[in-house]
Write a protein that binds this DNA or RNA. Structure first.
Lengths: 217, 217
DNA sequence: GTTTGTGAACCGTTTCACAGCA
DNA sequence: TGCTGTGAAACGGTTCACAAAC
């Protein structure tokens, strides 16, 4: 098994949607799902869906569709969610608390294992059932709790420093909620979730469609 | 002025970064910023930056760079942030509260003007300084408070319904935090912020780089 | 000398179209 | 007949390279 196929970024994003859809339909008792059905759910063409799913191998049956359960397993396999991903959350502010309280992530194979914060006033408090730990405990937490992912939910100014600490502690990937581009070693992939940027993109899209904010049509 | 240049999606995302960078440097007293400097901040090549900024017109000076203040204005102009974008937030759960408390958005020209929720137990309570309003007040709120953007921060199951209500109420764009693809009229653009999907993309990237979760070293 | 603006080549993704299988 | 898998064509975005401007 020399190397898994690399998955293009746009495809990776859609796989996430297919996973949801297949899981939902499987849960509803549907055995097979066609590329057209997936396309409707993901906003993609059926051809696109087939191309995307081809990275998983040939697990569709002509004339029938894709096995719902099989798809779930296959996509989870590619994503690497055979078991669980354990994450450490740095930052017990608004975003951090919201994430920690978002229990549904656990259903998808992601689990927050610990919360850390730099502020002494927060350390020791209980947030979403976790005792907030000091930053100094990061290396121990990552090692002892088999943490794979670090989540950055701190203000922009502190983000790079936290990223460095996470990499040093040995996490294998970083999810970044701070509006700041991170410099990290190539071997540690990072994904940004930036809703300020999202808002701006939205504003731009709105402006493109309706140049003048008219009073009311 | 028949039509503004349409901005490719990847470019739109980077414009957001350039905006931040230009604003920061302008604030620090720097007058001109070169494409190389922007590139370093955004993780893009200098050529890429120039191509991106070309959608704003020719506002760079050869041999000198881009005027920092001018860039801020130009990007804000394209995004449509001359004045303020006012948003209504639907859903006073974890994510909703985090967003409502995230005051820095206001500095960037985005302002949450009202919070609504469906649950009677939440309506009337105060969240981040807002009295939570019932869903029935949506049309009034949008009209009377000149709301441009609707923000969906409700569970997946309710997302489409809320989207329909927002469109009916007259919002011009939707920012969606629910992990659900929305069906909305073409004239109302939508942008998704989906951190579950982001986590999965991250997990996939990690898996691709290190197929086997080895013990250590 | 430095840096922009931009056509042209390049590359990856999407769409198309259809052969092959159920 | 219905639906998948997949080469081939089409598309869009990125990189390259350089003339023009400071």
């Amino acid at each position: 098994m020399p190397g898994k196929a690399r998955v293009p970024r746009p495809t990776a994003e859609r796989l996430s949607v297919y996973l949801r859809e297949a899981a939902r339909r499987a849960g509803a008792g549907q055995l097979k799902v066609s590329s057209r059905e997936h396309g409707a759910a993901a906003g993609a063409s059926d051809a696109q869906v087939r191309k995307d799913l081809a990275v998983l191998g040939s697990l569709g049956q002509p004339g029938v569709g894709y096995d719902a359960e099989g798809l779930v397993d296959a996509i989870r396999g590619v994503i690497g969610v055979h078991e669980r991903w354990r994450a450490v959350l740095v930052g017990a502010g608004n975003i951090g608390r919201a994430l920690a309280s978002y229990r549904r992530l656990a259903d998808e194979g992601f689990e927050i294992a610990a919360i850390l914060d730099r502020a002494p006033s927060v350390v020791g408090r209980t947030v979403a059932g976790f005792e907030v730990l000091p930053m100094s405990s990061l290396p121990d937490v990552v090692r002892r709790q088999s943490i794979g992912i670090g989540v950055i939910a701190v203000p922009r100014e502190a983000a790079q420093e936290v990223a460095d600490a996470l990499v040093a502690a040995g996490v294998r990937g970083i999810l970044n909620f701070a509006p700041q581009r991170l410099e990290v070693a190539d071997r540690v992939p990072g994904v940004d979730v930036d809703f300020r940027s999202a808002l701006e993109r939205l504003a731009l899209a709105v402006s493109e469609r309706a140049p003048e904010p008219r009073g009311r049509g």
